[in-house]
């Protein structure tokens, strides 16, 4: 039984699992430290506005949140860059992201597993624009003068802050949909293939 799982086309190379885990953990750090920074002057309502409960924040105070946020950004950004180079180099991008076949399957296929898989790839692909939005809006707030051309794309400061904040609910929604689908497709084999660092024999 275990040999079947190991030889499954869903088995993932260790490097992909490492990319996945580093992304998961660093994104968790970015969100929690970002919410700490948010609390210094809430995006919605300013100082008297809606604060985030301390339990989901990281760093203890503004300087602590910023230390974590601007340390974790390197881990997050470099991991994403390495992953990008990897999928490009190995031509993995060709068959991991959503393709026209998936859209056709959703319209025509009566095979529920195929349809599930199509949904999975659509949702998976959606993380790319979400992560690009996170980085573009983040860089715009971090270096609004040196990258003024990037910051100006977001309009005024409040719009920029809101766009950067929106990456939090978007990532959380993505995580919920993506993990539900990964657990659902192939009776959880996709989830296992990407999360387990050691094969259980």
């Amino acid at each position: 039984m275990s040999t079947i799982v190991k030889k499954s086309p869903l088995g993932q190379p260790s490097i992909v699992k490492i990319f996945h885990w580093v992304n998961l953990i660093s994104l968790f750090g970015m969100i929690t430290s970002g919410l700490q920074i948010y609390n210094a002057n809430p995006v919605f309502g300013g100082r008297e506005g809606i604060h985030i409960p301390w339990v989901v924040t990281l760093g203890g105070w503004l300087a602590g949140g910023r230390n974590w946020h601007f340390a974790m950004m390197w881990v997050y950004g470099l991991n994403l860059l390495a992953y990008g180079l990897y999928i490009f180099w190995t031509k993995r991008w060709r068959d991991r992201f959503v393709a026209t076949g998936d859209l056709k399957a959703l319209q025509a296929s009566s095979n529920s597993k195929r349809r599930n898989y199509a949904w999975h790839r659509i949702v998976y692909t959606s993380i790319i624009p979400i992560l690009v939005l996170a980085i573009a809006s983040g860089l715009s707030m971090y270096q609004p003068v040196q990258f003024y051309w990037l910051a100006s794309l977001f309009g005024d400061w409040q719009t920029l802050r809101t766009a950067h904040f929106m990456t939090v609910p978007l990532v959380l929604l993505f995580t919920f949909l993506h993990s539900s689908l990964a657990l659902g497709v192939g009776e959880g084999k996709i989830a296992t293939a990407f999360l387990k660092l050691k094969n259980s024999n």
Partner: peptide, 19 residues
């Protein structure tokens, strides 16, 4: 909770590396 407390205790050493 452990992560939250560690996040407060460790922000200074983290900053010494990243800053």
């Amino acid at each position: 909770l452990v992560v939250n407390v560690a996040g407060t205790l460790l922000y200074d050493p983290i900053g010494r590396i990243s800053m």
